[in-house]
Amino acid sequence: MKKNSLWLCGLVVLLLLGLAGCAKKQAQAPQPPSPANKNLILSSTTDVQDTGLMDVLIPMFQTQTGYVVKPIYNGSGQAIALGAKGEADVLITHAPSAEQPDVANGDFINYQLLMHNSYVIVGPPDDPAKIKGLSATDALKKIAAAKAVFVSRGDNSGTNIEEKALWKQAGITPNGSWYLNAGQGMAPTLLLASQKTGYTLTDLSTYLAQQKNLQLDILVQGGKALTNIYHVMQVNPAKFSKVNTDGAKAFEDFMLSPATQKVIADFGKDKYGQPLYYADAGNIATGGQ
């Protein structure tokens, strides 16, 4: 009995010692400058996280400015809704049609073009609906006519809003057992489409990051209709007093600075052989690539 207790104590002590060791290592990080209100909530679309872009940019920003960014990733629809409630300080989203009403009514200020890439329609390599090389709207028409499986994000994200706009342009209201509503992020939706041998609309960057797990090929790409545009904007402190104005401004300035824009433009080149994003600060985005 006593022997056993001793054993237990020994184990616990060892465990604590090990953990204390880890804690010490953690405390040795260099100390950056220290603003008055350090906490900065970024409400952002998920795909900039899923590609790993934010894992590069946020540490850079934090070291340069001393702010602590709390990035909250959701579909653009929800990301915008959080900002419009004053629950975030700064936003990165890619659904211009959903952003603009909130810019117009003054929820968001300093609405700036950040970067763009493109949407693509991906599908099974044997392409049962024969959409390869078509325009986006023609491709959707053929998918609907063939009743081929199409997986929709169904989550009011930027990609989902773009998809709905494309169906509208094609003059089709998609429904039926071939049209699946995933209600999930881009990566799970791609995986679902791959497992169900279906088609889906995706941003190119998430597709490239996920490609090794998918049996999906790019079938439709290019054209102005498939341009995916990202904006950065601040939540209006005149409307929401709890907003970290200085932090939001610092973050937006950082994102639009030439140095950061260069990092964005180069991001992913080494891993995928092509850039994942095209830096746009100060430009008006023009057609796809």
Binding site: T46, Q49, D50, T51, G52, D55, I58, V68, K70, P71, I72, Y73, G185, A187, P188, A209, Q210, Q211, K212, N213
Partner: peptide
């Protein structure tokens, strides 16, 4: 928690994130 690196990132939320990032 928001799965914030260095603050609220725990094992379950990291697993979920790695799946989204394609690193099974």
């Amino acid at each position: 928690g928001g799965n914030i690196e260095g603050l609220t990132r725990v094992l379950t939320t990291t697993i979920d994130q790695e799946v989204s990032m394609g690193d099974f």
